[in-house]
Amino acid sequence: MKKLMLFFLFSSIISVICAQPIKIMLVTGGHSFDTVQFFQLFDQMDEVDYEHFAQPEANKAIADGRGEDFDVMVFYDMWDEISSDQKAAYLKLTKQGKPFLFLHHALVSYQKWPAFEDIIGGRYIEENKNIPEDEWSEYEHDVWVYCSIENYTPVTAGFRELRFFDEVYGNIRISDDVKPLLQTRHPKSAEYVAWENRYNASTIVYIQPGHDKRTYENEDYRKLLFQAIRYLNTFNK
């Protein structure tokens, strides 16, 4: 009996030692946001350990191979400048199977890099004289967004409906190959506001809500992001 108790005690200690936090590379830059509340969102995730990189330093770090040090890459940036070496580094990570989580305005990034649209699974089209006006995307601030579950996965587990006072994007491009996760019927929004994508060996999740502190402080949003990170970590190689 004593030996059995010692075995279980030893096993418990090993489990605690081996339960390492999920290391995420958290990327921002190119768009203002409620910084205090945004970082508190990640500070309160007990199972997550993040390191913050602001653009353009984030892309330099990725080109230097720093992305390989993390379990999950999380992007809340809206950035357009990217060198050929940095593009190659992103693509290398996808070939290695590094999981990515893109949030909100990250959908606007890299307007002139076609492969980025393939990675994230869609694109917000900025106004551009070289693009027909009817293809330009639109946004609407400060609206109630009611989201239903389109597909139940570990990301959407435990939800029936989510509601955010946020910003919606309309007339965006969404790949036919993505798996929709959240759907809304808001008239100014695209039909899907969260999805899962695959690119090379990588699993990618995009979540459109997340404009400001009113959403960061929403308990359902916190749970949604954490479940996405934990799910993506299962694909870390």
Rank of each mutant, 00 (worst) to 15 (best):
K3D: 14
L4W: 10
I14C: 09
V16H: 10
I17R: 09
A19C: 14
P21I: 06
K23M: 10
M25T: 07
L26Q: 00
G29N: 05
G29R: 02
S32Y: 05
F33W: 12
V36K: 14
V36C: 05
F38E: 03
F39H: 11
Q40D: 09
Q40A: 11
L41K: 01
F42R: 03
D43R: 11
M45N: 06
E47T: 15
Y50V: 02
H52I: 05
Q55N: 13
P56M: 07
G67N: 03
V72S: 02
M73G: 01
Y76R: 08
W79G: 00
I82Y: 01
K87H: 03
Y90S: 01
L91N: 04
K95P: 03
Q96F: 12
Q96P: 03
H105Y: 13
L107T: 01
Y110V: 11
W113S: 02
A115T: 15
E117G: 14
I119A: 09
G121M: 10
G121F: 08
R123S: 04
Y124G: 08
P132T: 01
D134R: 09
W136L: 01
W136I: 01
S137K: 06
E138I: 11
E140R: 14
H141S: 06
V143A: 02
W144N: 15
W144E: 13
V145Y: 00
Y146L: 11
N151I: 00
Y152L: 10
P154Y: 07
T156K: 00
T156Y: 02
A157P: 03
A157C: 05
E167H: 02
V168L: 05
N171D: 10
L181G: 07
P187G: 02
S189W: 02
A190V: 03
Y192D: 05
V193L: 12
V193G: 06
W195I: 05
E196P: 03
N197Q: 13
R198V: 13
S202Y: 09
T203L: 06
I207A: 03
D212R: 14
K213C: 03
Y216D: 10
E217T: 13
E217L: 13
Y221H: 01
Y221E: 12
L224Y: 03
L225P: 01
F226I: 11
F226H: 13
L232M: 10
N236H: 15
